[in-house]
Computed example of a mutant assay.
Amino acid sequence: MPELSTPKQKISALIITYNEMGYIEKCIDSVSFADEIIVVDSYSTDGTYEHLLAHPKVKVIQNPFENFTAQKSFTLKQAKNDWVLFLDADEVVTQKLQNEITATINDPEACEAYWFYRKFMFQNTPLNFSGWQTDKNHRLFRKSKVRFTDKKLVHETLEVDGCSGILKEKLTHYCYKDYEDYKGKMLKYGQLKAKEDFYKEKHFNYVLMTVKPLWKFFNHYIIRFGFLDGKKGIKICYLNALGVLERFRELKRLEKKNELAYYLVMP
């Protein structure tokens, strides 16, 4: 009697976007092997949404951006399949990684979630150090076995009911388009981290506002060999430190706003 073959596992590719023309095309092409591609766009103004509407393999939905965790939680709910590949719009899956993903989800002994290491690209050249060499994120997982924790608004964290593995092949991440784009990204991250701190009742501190950005630059540029990335390393490490500074500036603004609101409602 012939053996019954195990049905091939289906996978949904999920992406969130905001003004990603020039990058989203490569990302979509790299996940064309997925059975479903869903993009949740937070009202792009550069034609990203209109471009994706015309794409035959993409289902695009618009949803207002509140924070990264809320947006990714909303996007996860849209997936039809249990296996999910979650990418940022400036990330690309190589052919070798595609093959590893397909083999992994069809492995009967697969974990419930997988970490990806990433290869960072400064425009079109590799960024080998500057603090990113050990960076990894959950990108492949079973929808039924995970949830994004609501304790973080940025650098969202996945809670996994089961084991996590690590894939060998790296995800390519085009982290740096140009100076203003990366600066804007770091400032936005800093502001969201400040909101996290504010909700946790952490207080603004002038000493930490001075020390933490300096430490961030020193740690990434010296201890984590950012100087080996040359001028690229200086830019990346400086902007990462600027994001930390913005975190404290925004926390100070939030505290002042809260104090003002308190005095206005006092009898």
Rank of each mutant, 00 (worst) to 15 (best):
M1A: 12
T6N: 12
K8S: 12
I11H: 00
S12T: 14
I24V: 12
I24Y: 02
D29T: 14
S30I: 07
S32L: 13
S32F: 00
A34K: 04
D41R: 05
S44G: 03
Q62A: 05
N63F: 07
P64H: 10
F68R: 13
A70F: 08
Q78K: 11
V84P: 00
F86L: 15
D88I: 09
A89M: 04
V93D: 02
Q98A: 07
E100M: 01
I105L: 06
I105N: 03
I105Y: 01
Y114F: 07
Y117D: 14
N124A: 10
Q133L: 06
R139S: 07
F141Q: 04
V146T: 11
F148H: 11
T149K: 06
K151C: 00
V154D: 09
S164Y: 02
K168Q: 14
T172C: 03
L187W: 02
E196R: 07
K200W: 12
K202A: 07
F204I: 13
N205L: 04
L214A: 09
K231R: 14
K231M: 10
I234Y: 04
C237N: 11
L242G: 03
V244T: 12
R247V: 13
R247I: 12
F248V: 15
R249Y: 09
L254E: 06
N258E: 14
A261G: 13
L264A: 12
P267D: 12
